[in-house]
Design a protein around this nucleic acid. Sequence first.
DNA 1: GCGCCCCTGTCAATGGCATTGACAACGTGA
DNA 2: TCACGTTGTCAATGCCATTGACAGGGGCGC
Lengths: 240, 240
Amino acid sequence: MPRAATESPKGGSRRRAALSREVIIEAALNIGSKEGGSALTFSRLGKELGADPTSVYRHFRDKDELVVALTDRMVTESVERMAGVEPDAVGWREWLRRVAHSIRSVYLDRPAIAVLAASRTAASKSETESVERIIGVLHGAGLPVVEAAEVYRALVDLTLAFTQYSAAWSLLDPEYQSRDEQAWAVGYATLPAERFPLVHASAARLLELTRDDAAVFEYTLGLFLDGVQARLAGRQGSAT
Amino acid sequence: MPRAATESPKGGSRRRAALSREVIIEAALNIGSKEGGSALTFSRLGKELGADPTSVYRHFRDKDELVVALTDRMVTESVERMAGVEPDAVGWREWLRRVAHSIRSVYLDRPAIAVLAASRTAASKSETESVERIIGVLHGAGLPVVEAAEVYRALVDLTLAFTQYSAAWSLLDPEYQSRDEQAWAVGYATLPAERFPLVHASAARLLELTRDDAAVFEYTLGLFLDGVQARLAGRQGSAT
DNA sequence: GCGCCCCTGTCAATGGCATTGACAACGTGA
DNA sequence: TCACGTTGTCAATGCCATTGACAGGGGCGC
């Protein structure tokens, strides 16, 4: 393992910064957020860094190791985004909602990375701190510790799964995306109202939701939190 | 030389069935469910069919078109699995739970295909019928039509998102899987109990859930349905 | 100060992938 | 009979991750 790269901003060298894990991660994040950056590949990475693509292998054993490092970074960023928000100030429900949204938005800012990172875990330090905090909020709201842990896990997986789902879709070749949209549009246009009265009655809304991942996520999250709330109320009721 | 792929054109030909959309789809489903079938590629498909990989292009414009056809097939299969189950017999909640599970199990039987198909849609005929049925059940339970449509969409997306999430993980190179598991195990093993009392108290359960996608899905689905139930109850209350 | 070796970066090559265009066999309808 | 469309094959293209051989340079033991 290479030791931490010695800092290099010395001299007036116009050479590019020496490669290091940090620099490479930054370049990868950059690619992920570019409009054209539909995929993270070593050759794009090389171009971004102004270096040979295979240089990256001197700092990461393989692509997966890079992905894990990126995962770590994204998680940290999500956590930081919640740093200033106090659960007590907004209530547990709103706070959890914001946690979910901060994760989603950090990932969706870089779909090309999200699609690789969402199902991985880095188990970083800041993640552990965040887990403690989330479980704490749920526990404080009235859930036993183990149940709080279960809800935490469900919430995070729900968020990451939806996020990956959205990212995968947004990376799809536009030509293929339109195949799906065509399929829906045609399907709804041609359906006999007598045989499908309910679909017909809600077709407009269904079509709207098809194009709006964010709304579906918001709605699902709302129902999920309602479920938590109901479980909390039930517990309170029986405890009384 | 183009050797006789079909020993004899007609008559007693048993070399292999002539290619057709149907035959190719069947072969693809086969690959997806094989243990070794970690990915669906044209060359595997060719081997499975005993034909040149590029033959497939005579029946599908590109891989995406094949994926859409497979999606159609998987959806149909999921719907069929629910054919005999009457909503009234088991109650709306249990019925919806089973719908979600039937989708999940059909897809997870073929992870290699699930990962490609889960975020696509074919808008097939049987899918439309199923949508009508699901919305009908929710409407029958007491939800206004549009809200029923919203819940339908949320439920299906929740299920497909989790399914894709699980499939992606199960397809991951075992070497990479163990990187994640190592990360968690190490993370939990080294955490100072004084600083992370809640994580420490629930570490066993958390580790368990890390290895058990199905349990997390079940739990999340339960909370989601609790949310629907609560919304239903609220509606009933206000209607009184 | 000298030389050696490891760290870093480069280059060429490998094997897998989807996709394309040229070509060959076959059967059909004019 | 013959031209043509359909189906299958083959070779080639271009992108991808990964590897092994090679080269310069800086630090460390001497």
